[in-house]
Every structure is written in C-alpha cells, then in structure tokens.
Design a protein around this nucleic acid. Structure first.
Lengths: 115, 115
DNA sequence: ATACATAGTATCTAATAAGATACTATTGGG
DNA sequence: CCCAATAGTATCTTATTAGATACTATGTAT
C-alpha cells in the first residue's frame, strides 16, 4: 500500500509527522479516542469540516492504520469508526499534547496581558 | 502578531495541530531539543530540506514562539537557534511521539512480514 | 410513487506549502 | 581588489490540501 511504502525505515519523528499531517487528524483521533462513532456523529462533533473533507481525512487515517472502519450491511448505511490498536496507543501522545497545548495557550494569554 | 490572533481560545488539540503543521517542525524541534544550534549546523542535520525551506520553517516556529533566534553581530554572520520555554516543554510530547512512532514502525514491519 | 436517512462520490477551485534556483551583504585575510 | 564564509532573500514553479457544491445508492415507511 502506498501509505506504508514510503514510511518504511524512517525515523519515528518523521513517521509521526507524516501520519499527523492532515489538518484534522489530531481532532479526529481525539474524538475517536473517547468512543467509537458513526460518520454522522463524528461530523456533528467537528462542525467545521465538510463531509467530503471528513471522508478524505478518515480514509487517510484508515490507510495509515490508525483507525478502523466497520460497515454494517444496513440501509440507511451504518459505518462505525474506531481506533486501531496502534491508534489506541496514540492516546498517550494525545495526553501530552493536550497538556502542552494548554500551557501554550496560557503563554499566548500572558503575552497579550502585558504587550 | 498574526500567528497569535487566530490561535486564541482554541482547544489545545487544534492549537497543537496548527503549530506542528509544518512538514519539518517536529524534526527541527527534536534537533534543537538536543542543543542550541547555528543555522548551518541545523542544516547539516537535516540534509533533505533546502536553505530557503529551512528558513521558512524556522521563521514560522519563531513566530509561534517555539524557538528563539539569537543574532551575534559578527561577520560572517552567526545566528543561534534554541528552544523557548514553551518549546522546552514540548520535549515531553516529543518523548511520547518517539515511543509511539517506534511502535508504529513496528506494526508496519509486522504487516509486511505476513502479508 | 415518493420522501427520507445515511454515508458516501465526483468535480472543480482556492489556498497553502514546499522546493529549486539564483542572488545579496559584510568584512577580514591574502 | 578579490575571495571565502555565513545566513540569509527574492522569485517562480510545483505539489499537496482543503473546501464548496452537487450528485448517488438503497431499503423502509407513508
């Protein structure tokens, strides 16, 4: 698969950077980290991206093995997205990222307080 | 400053995603996390990006407050790059990212072993 | 027969980012 | 006077991403 080939043998940082490159990847992983969700629910959690963009981001994450897609043979369709094993392991990164992001926002506020 | 305004009040994940969006940001932060470096040394560590690209990435990181740029009034010029306070705090994220990236690469190898 | 719900596709456009290449400024040393 | 060393700029081109918009498929309920 395309996605795998060019990630092979690279350093962990480059690999991580590549996998996280989509503009919404972190947000999507965060939401799916809370619970498995259907497409529509995920979309409601992320009202700022369009359906086609969400589809593209999900496909990229799926190709890279971070999430899984389960199709129920129903009409109207039901498709559930969840974190894969390696996706679940990514939650540890998310924890640190959230802490750091909070601190970062604080530093911005500090700078704004006394300009 | 532009970079600050539109990050304000956002959630930590969105903020983090934005700051890390450059293709080389994580690699640069990793190298500067090891030690303060001059422009040329950094470039030697990252032979895959051109001078102009490196300059752009460094400027973006500086605008976002992650790194600091110290100019020595010399000829030929000497400019040192280092992590800012909030940049240093990012090292905790890097640690988790490296662990996860390593695990991720392993899963790719596993998949390749038995296709 | 028609409408509805869900999870999409297909195109096209616009915005952003990255990369290639060539050029600049300064000044101490030969 | 000319060269080397360092850290850039300035342009232009290309590639990658994201976003907008309109369309599709299908079984059930009315």
């Amino acid at each position: 698969m395309e996605a795998e080939k060019d990630l092979f043998g690279k350093c962990p940082y480059m690999t991580a950077q590549k996998v996280l490159s989509g503009k919404w990847s972190i947000m999507i992983l965060y939401h799916l980290g809370k619970k498995t969700m259907r497409f529509g629910e995920l979309q409601r959690q992320l009202p700022d991206l369009t359906q086609s963009t969400l589809t593209k981001q999900l496909r990229a994450l799926e190709e890279n093995g971070l999430i899984e897609r389960k199709i129920y043979p129903q009409v109207p369709p039901k498709v559930e997205y969840s974190l894969s094993d390696i996706g679940i392991k990514f939650k540890k990164v998310l924890v640190e990222l959230a802490i750091w992001g909070g601190e970062y926002i604080e530093t911005l506020k500090d700078k704004a307080d006394r300009p």
